[in-house]
Write a protein that binds this DNA or RNA. Structure first.
Ligand SMILES: [Mn+2]
Ligand SMILES: [Mn+2]
Ligand SMILES: [Zn+2]
Ligand SMILES: [Zn+2]
Lengths: 141, 141
DNA sequence: TAGCACTTTGCAACCCGGTTGCAAAAATCT
DNA sequence: AGATTTTTGCAACCGGGTTGCAAAGTGCTA
């Protein structure tokens, strides 16, 4: 699907030097069906150390190549940013965490409405997570 | 402000037997200016063990005496429920986490509008957190 | 009131996700 | 090549949360 040079140009566009590990992590993110956790990446990238994955993800965050959110258990979930510009979550789309299968969904079709904060509160980023049952688990239950 | 028997009747109303520790934790929650973490309660309740505080909070959660949310660092924040009935966060009010002073605010005056989830997703609870600067830190910065 | 069952509590240990110091390996520069 | 910088793996650490277990407390019964 994505050749390595595809990914290299994507990374270059974000100002990220493409190393072997960065290509692997980026590829894993593209192939994931949804948001993934550090633990999930550890499982799928057995050749790469946890700390290296963590550092790659941190770098990706700093360069707006991925965005992250807490899934409701206090676990960070990462996924590639689809927008080209800065992606600091201020666009505010929704995430869904399934309490049965413990998977997260990026509901980026649902934009969170504009919120008017009380005087003095300055927002930097938004994190809107709905917890419940995903369509899959709802039926198998 | 709140006598011990005030608190005892509040707890009784939620079906919670009032023990010494439960009164202490409940009082600490009433006296807090906003949502508090387990660590904060540990600091203010030096006579009570961390695990005991944790178990009291878990009990309170089960009886809808408090609600909890992740503040964006993966840390749980607790606060008393104001509503009398079940408080499973389905009302969906907003919380604000200040990245400078690391304090959370319960913006329960701001109700988030009804969200229409994609077909098949069944919501149980909502967690809407805005991160940024609180009025205090915005000025002192 | 003594005996007994049940509940609550403190302590210590554990779990797990995340994070860091450090030295080896790899890439880049002169 | 040799020096310098960056990346990586490893091991250890951190902090919030959680649990097993035995001691202490509570309440009831005889
Ligand atoms: Mn997303
Ligand atoms: Mn609240
Ligand atoms: Zn599911
Ligand atoms: Zn602040």
């Amino acid at each position: 699907m994505h050749t390595n040079s595809d990914i290299e140009t994507k990374l270059a566009g974000k100002g990220i030097k493409p190393t072997a590990n960065r290509l692997l992590v980026y590829r894993a993110l593209t192939e994931a069906s949804g948001p993934v956790t550090l633990a999930m990446l550890e499982d799928s990238l057995v050749t790469v150390d946890k700390s290296s994955i963590f550092r790659v993800l941190t770098l990706f965050l700093e360069h707006d190549a991925v965005h992250a959110f807490e899934d409701g258990r206090g676990v960070l979930n990462y996924e590639l940013c689809t927008t080209d510009g800065a992606c600091n979550m201020t666009d505010g789309h929704l995430h869904f965490y399934c309490e049965a299968c413990h998977h997260s969904y990026c509901l980026d079709t649902i934009k969170t409405p504009e919120l008017v904060l009380p005087e003095g509160f300055t927002p930097h980023s938004l994190s809107f997570v709905v917890k419940g049952l995903c369509p899959h688990c709802r039926h198998s239950h």
